[in-house]
Design a protein around this nucleic acid. Structure first.
Lengths: 100, 100
DNA sequence: CGTGTAAGGAATTCTGACACG
DNA sequence: CGTGTAAGGAATTCTGACACG
């Protein structure tokens, strides 16, 4: 939807934007911390959101976290967000005029 | 500054996003309707702003406008914006507390 | 004028592997 | 575990030119 989520940036540019090596970026994808799209030919396409996430990942790695731990933490946060959205949705269904 | 202005998208992706051929995109650059950045190696890097502008350009071409005319119109609009900003700046300098 | 195309070369990216630790 | 690197190949992009009109 937003420009933030459009997967349009190649790995070389992501490397420049984040300061990470292409090797690091590919590895974080392998560990499923990010999920770039692919072109027909197979080249990775990242979003600005991915770029931001990569910077956070890099910081966590520097702080001594392992990719498996970062992934678990990411999952927790994602689930928390989904849960909150569902609750908000049910509230809105029960009280249609309510504004949060 | 904004994601809108970051020159990070390669011509292939721009082609997909706009539906224009790479030939068309390069030609519009040659006619100075857009100004992509270049990587060290020389590959073009576009912004989302460029993508939007390309769509507008394509529409104008379809409407029978020539690139030279589109460029003149663009210049006019840019100058108008600069003029408005200067006026606003001078007003703010003269009346520091004023809010527009 | 605006666009398609074939041509040849260069820049970019990809994967799988070996290395270190 | 996280990252560097050399290797070979494939995908992507570049320019200048010819063509059509």
């Amino acid at each position: 939807m937003s420009y933030r989520d459009k997967k349009v940036i190649t790995i070389g540019v992501v490397s420049e934007l984040t300061g990470l090596s292409e090797r690091q970026i590919r590895y974080y994808e392998e560990r499923r911390l990010i999920h770039p799209d692919r072109s027909k030919g197979g080249t990775r396409k990242f979003s600005f959101d991915d770029v931001e996430k990569l910077v956070r990942i890099a910081n966590q790695i520097e702080d001594g976290w392992q990719t498996s731990e970062i992934r678990k933490q990411d999952l927790k946060e994602t689930n928390a967000q989904i849960r909150d959205k569902m609750i908000a949705g049910q509230l809105n269904a029960a009280f249609p005029s309510r504004k949060m």
